[in-house]
Write a protein that binds this DNA or RNA. Sequence first.
DNA 1: CAGTATACATGACAGCTTGTCATATTGCAA
DNA 2: TTGCAATATGACAAGCTGTCATGTATACTG
Lengths: 210, 210
Amino acid sequence: MPRSTFCRLAPEKQERLLEAATREFSRRSFAEASINQIIKDAGIPRGSFYMYFDDKEDLFCYVMSGYVDQLLMVVRESVLRASGDLFQGMLDLYDFLLRQGPGQKPGDMGAMAAILACNSGLQKNMLLGLLDRESVLAGLGDAVDQDMLDLRHDRDLGDILASVLTVACPLLYSGLQGDSQGAVRERLENVLMLMKRGMARDKKVLEEQK
Amino acid sequence: MPRSTFCRLAPEKQERLLEAATREFSRRSFAEASINQIIKDAGIPRGSFYMYFDDKEDLFCYVMSGYVDQLLMVVRESVLRASGDLFQGMLDLYDFLLRQGPGQKPGDMGAMAAILACNSGLQKNMLLGLLDRESVLAGLGDAVDQDMLDLRHDRDLGDILASVLTVACPLLYSGLQGDSQGAVRERLENVLMLMKRGMARDKKVLEEQK
DNA sequence: CAGTATACATGACAGCTTGTCATATTGCAA
DNA sequence: TTGCAATATGACAAGCTGTCATGTATACTG
């Protein structure tokens, strides 16, 4: 979380900092990225930076949380365009993000893709850590057609959304990394199918067990 | 990957380094961990360290890969004990790891749990990045009772194993973090059930579509 | 045996990083 | 104007990393 001081800052200055951060984080992995570089680029003195953020991770999370919000909106739109079909929506999202490709202009999904592509090491699946159950539910809950889902408990919708995103995220990374995108897409498609139809054989027996 | 020089090293020295690394990585997050501390603790000169590993991440991945191998064996045993029921096995694994709790002695699952518990920030889901499809398949493929699974293509077994682990990992983290473990366990249980039985309503229709 | 090549060990070093802090400045309220 | 709180700033100490020149051991060769 940025300090309150940052929020009271002139929007122009805020943006300069965020853009510089996005540039740096798109160029080098989180570990390699340098606060020095960012503040130099943004023209902000060192002391001020620590007035606004705790440290590099704080800034990084703030930057990413903005992109994550956008991402959730994009997912939402994908799902809506797919008439509420969550699974088709995720597949469309994959296509969208890969068509987009890692871009430069800070602020859009291309920039996020670039940041993700830069962090193929230990930070690989950081997106998962930033997607919290509540905002996912809030962002997508009413976009999906719940009649298409087998919901039996209150928690089921949240659990389904979370699971589907969790499974899709690593495949999104693979795709952005350039790992033969055709194969990755097929895997995503198959995994979504498996989650839709269920992985256990003999559903009858399974149903009766309940 | 460690350099070949490291592999040719006296096992005693190797262990000293790995133990020191485990100690440091259990105390501080990856970002905070210091190579200086590790080599001081292990009594290894700076220059030598860079003879053995590229950098901190290289060492970290090597340490973790050892634990990941162990983890796969533990999962395997859980599944076997559950008579090949992959889903029950994962639930048992969760119970096992949480009963174990973050421990100190380098080398066992407790140490791994401690390292994971230390990395609740951006590295949160690093385990996922270290679990590669092939070793998962090799380690678990023959332990699960495939008659219990609805396998229709060659790739299905691999995709199911990968998906189940992918979904379980973040919940393992939550549990190790101490996020009200009862609730997390229930969520894991429910998510596994959803994956077993399928998330789409009206399986009949879904089947016919195929 | 001497000679040479190859691998490994070592610690000093340059260059960079980070977070803090004392001081200066600003904005606002009384 | 005066006083108080918030903010700005850059110099600094402390620490970190990766490299490299030099030293040592091991192995092979003629």
